[in-house]
């Protein structure tokens, strides 16, 4: 009689309770077991699913509905297309001539607080988190008696596009909501960069950031309120980033 192929018996750790304790102490993928030296089918596919979601986030677009709902008009940087955007960060820092024209026509000059939104490296991060964060920021600004200028959406933006916008509108303080590089834990994580009087030549250390804004990280609504407080502090001290830190010490 021929041998009948047999599946290996299911894995039992030496201590089930011990394994649970280890697993609950870290988000790392441990206690995953193996097929020979390779990961099990379930673990391998789970990893691939998370990566698929991250890759799709890079290529995702922010929907017209969301922008309409929040009353944001759209302008573009010189990013061209997704491939150029990824290869040439410098292009994502420069607005098109058309964008400059539109912003100049539509926006209030010398705003106290200028709000800008960009897809960055994850359109789905904006889609998932912007509404809650944005609305609570508006509430927070009202509480602090701060006045926001005309908000808009920048397609294909990089963080430093805030300098050109700050220059154009002579903004007192600017906050940019932008999609972060997707990770496997969250493909939809948003950051908020803030800067006092961003202008051409602004140094990176003058920017400050609240990152990891998503339901499993910093809650979007909480982040919005906190950002409002921070903008208030920035305006009080007329400084942001490292400069602000040293003044507050």
């Amino acid at each position: 009689m021929e041998d009948i192929p047999r599946l290996p018996t299911a894995w039992r750790p030496r201590s089930t309770e011990g394994l649970e304790r280890l697993q609950s102490s870290t988000p790392a993928r441990i206690g995953v077991w193996r097929a020979g030296t390779r990961p099990t089918t379930g673990q391998m596919l789970k990893f691939r699913c998370d990566h698929a979601s991250a890759v799709d986030a890079v290529y995702s677009e922010v929907s017209e509905e969301l922008l309409l709902e929040l009353g944001l008009f759209t302008v573009e940087t010189q990013y061209g297309n997704k491939e150029i955007y990824l290869k040439r960060p410098d292009r994502g820092r420069k607005l098109t001539d058309e964008a400059i024209d539109t912003i100049t026509k539509k926006c209030k000059l010398n705003p106290q607080v200028q709000i800008v939104v960009s897809d960055g490296l994850s359109g789905s991060a904006i889609e998932a988190n912007l509404t809650d964060c944005y609305l609570s920021l508006l509430d927070s600004l009202a509480v602090h008696g701060l006045e926001a200028g005309t908000p808009f959406f920048v397609k294909g933006g990089r963080v430093a596009c805030m300098d050109q916008i700050g220059e154009l509108l002579q903004a007192e303080v600017l906050v940019l909501f932008i999609g972060e590089r997707p990770g496997l834990v969250s493909s939809s994580s948003m950051s908020a960069y803030m800067c006092y009087r961003p202008r051409f030549g602004t140094v990176e250390s003058d920017r400050m950031v609240i990152s990891n804004i998503h339901p499993q990280g910093t809650f979007p609504a909480e982040a919005g309120a906190y950002i409002g407080d921070l903008l208030h502090t920035i305006l009080q001290h007329k400084a942001s980033g490292v400069k602000l830190d040293s003044m507050r010490k």
Partner: peptide, 9 residues
Amino acid sequence: PMADDCMLN
């Protein structure tokens, strides 16, 4: 662990 660094992303 499983090639996924949960700190450095």
